[in-house]
């Protein structure tokens, strides 16, 4: 068993519980124990890009310090990697190290944590650097390996037509992305290892509409249609995602998209970890399909394919 620090974030504990329940279970099945940070705070949520801002970068940096503390307390040994499932968490944690490359910003954040300790407690020490954020997809690709995944498959997803969707934040910008930003292959490789039939989705790296889902649902509805219609026409039966916000938009906003464009048939949206839980032969409770978190219920499809 490899023990890796694990940063959950808010999404996978609420609207995306199906992601973490399946993800933590398949990790264990594949020899990875995800050890939750004893203390963690908000990841900072969205990449903040103004050059003159330090405040909005403090949250992810504090999380990196908590990983440092896990090592000091001996909860993990010499383990500077921290794993996340959510693309936004991954992005902000990864970006924090790039941000701190500027010595002036590093110094000012150190002063902040020093003073925070003085007045309200906070972290014991500043960030020493070197904590590396890993998206769980990278764990599967680089630590577990596709061959090992294929070896562990108990119920191949034979005949299941799956279209992958990546969204933005695990791919762009290049300096943060986990794969080729124009032609990523991680999800495809995993799905092939599971025995599924991969359906091409030309819009798999296009934006889902992101935070506009709060006040510009019209924009998100257009994008949801655009992101789903090609795989649907190509015969895809399920869309596979890796980000809780993409998943929400692709799944729940199908209602709006369907009103605008009558030719869109409903299609279930699942996290790749859920399909892995099925293929690796885990108990049903780890599929995460019974928690009322899907808009389009994937169960009828899974039953029809003898996967449930």
């Amino acid at each position: 068993m490899i023990r890796l620090p694990y940063y959950p974030g808010c999404a996978v504990q609420t609207t995306a519980r199906n992601y973490s329940i399946s993800g933590v279970a398949i990790a264990e099945k594949l020899g990875i124990e995800l050890v939750e940070l004893p203390k963690w705070n908000c990841c900072g949520v969205f990449p903040f890009l103004a050059n003159d801002d330090i405040m909005r970068h403090l949250a992810p940096i504090r999380n990196l310090i908590h990983v440092q503390e896990m090592n000091e307390k001996g909860i993990v040994q010499n383990e500077n990697r921290v794993v996340t499932f959510c693309s936004m968490c991954y992005h902000t944690l990864k970006e924090a190290n790039l941000f701190l490359k500027d010595p002036e910003k590093k110094e000012k954040t150190d002063i902040f944590f020093e003073r925070e300790k003085e007045f309200v407690g906070g972290v014991k020490e500043g960030y020493k650097g070197g904590v590396e954020a890993l998206d769980f997809l990278e764990v599967l690709k680089d630590i577990v390996g596709y061959d090992k995944i294929a070896e562990e498959v108990k119920k191949p997803l034979k005949g299941l037509k799956v279209a992958p969707y990546y969204g933005c934040l695990v791919l762009r910008p290049r300096e943060i992305g986990i794969d080729d930003p124009e032609n990523p292959t991680i999800l495809e490789n995993i799905l092939e290892a599971l025995g599924a039939e991969v359906i091409d989705n030309p819009n798999r790296i296009q934006c889902c509409g992101s935070y506009h889902t709060v006040d510009r649902r019209d924009i998100v509805a257009e994008l949801t249609y655009d992101n789903l219609i090609y795989p649907v026409r190509s015969g895809a039966e399920v869309i596979v995602t890796c980000c809780p916000l993409c998943t929400f938009n692709l799944d729940f906003r199908q209602k709006d998209a369907g009103k605008l464009h009558r030719d869109l048939q409903e299609i279930p949206v699942m996290y790749y970890t859920q399909l892995m839980a099925i293929a690796l032969g885990l108990d049903k409770q780890f599929y995460g399909v019974d928690l009322g978190l899907h808009y389009v219920d994937p169960k009828p499809l899974l039953e029809a394919k003898n996967l449930y």
């Binding site: 933005c168 910008p173 296009q206 506009h212 924009i219």
Partner: peptide, 10 residues
Amino acid sequence: ICSTCFSCYA
């Protein structure tokens, strides 16, 4: 309207 998707930059 920009949704911070980084496609233009990429």
